[in-house]
Simulated scan of single mutants.
Amino acid sequence: MNTMDRRKFLVAALCGAGAGLALAPLAASALPLDAGAAGRLAGEMNDDVERAQVVIVNGRPRRRRWVCWWRRGRRVCGWRWV
């Protein structure tokens, strides 16, 4: 099997995204609406929307530290978030 390099992958991804954007209006217009959604007014649509709540999973504050690490056989130093 041939390996795919970055350039071929990027071209394939962009072509796929372009085709998806070109076909999106056709697919969206083909989707039927149910009878309840088609008969509602814009003011009544707000009943379907729920309020979002922010949840902080890890409340630990982050700080920057000066650290050194190895990259490609060389030592590199710089600021890192810890």
Rank of each mutant, 00 (worst) to 15 (best):
N2D: 05
T3E: 11
M4H: 11
M4K: 13
D5V: 04
D5K: 03
R6G: 00
R6N: 08
R7V: 01
R7N: 10
R7M: 09
L10R: 12
V11P: 03
V11I: 15
V11Q: 12
A12Y: 03
A12N: 08
A13G: 06
L14I: 10
L14T: 11
C15I: 14
C15W: 00
G16V: 06
G16Y: 00
A17V: 01
A17I: 03
A17R: 09
A17K: 01
A19W: 06
A19K: 03
A22P: 05
L23D: 02
A24S: 11
A24F: 01
A27I: 04
A27D: 03
A27H: 02
A28P: 00
A28M: 07
S29W: 00
A30T: 04
L31R: 00
L31Q: 00
L31T: 00
L31M: 03
P32G: 00
P32W: 04
L33C: 09
L33V: 09
D34H: 11
D34S: 15
A35M: 05
A35T: 12
A35D: 08
A35G: 01
A35F: 02
G36P: 04
G36S: 13
A37P: 00
A37S: 13
A38G: 09
A38P: 00
G39A: 15
R40E: 01
R40F: 06
R40W: 05
A42D: 04
A42F: 12
E44K: 14
N46M: 10
N46Q: 12
N46P: 06
D47N: 13
D47I: 11
D47K: 12
D48S: 14
D48R: 14
D48G: 10
V49P: 01
E50F: 08
E50G: 07
E50I: 12
E50N: 11
R51M: 09
V54F: 04
V55M: 04
I56L: 04
I56W: 01
I56G: 01
V57L: 10
N58V: 08
N58Q: 11
G59T: 02
G59V: 03
G59C: 02
R60L: 05
R60Y: 06
R60N: 05
R62A: 14
R62N: 11
R62T: 14
R63P: 07
R63A: 04
R63E: 02
R64Y: 08
W66G: 06
W66C: 09
C68G: 01
C68N: 09
C68V: 13
W69S: 06
W69I: 11
W69P: 02
R71M: 04
R71F: 12
R71K: 15
R71A: 15
R72A: 13
R72D: 09
R72H: 14
G73S: 09
G73L: 06
R74A: 15
R74H: 15
R75Y: 15
R75G: 09
V76A: 12
V76C: 08
V76L: 11
C77N: 02
C77K: 01
C77E: 04
G78I: 01
G78R: 08
G78L: 07
W79L: 08
R80N: 05
W81I: 03
W81F: 08
V82P: 02
V82A: 12
V82T: 13
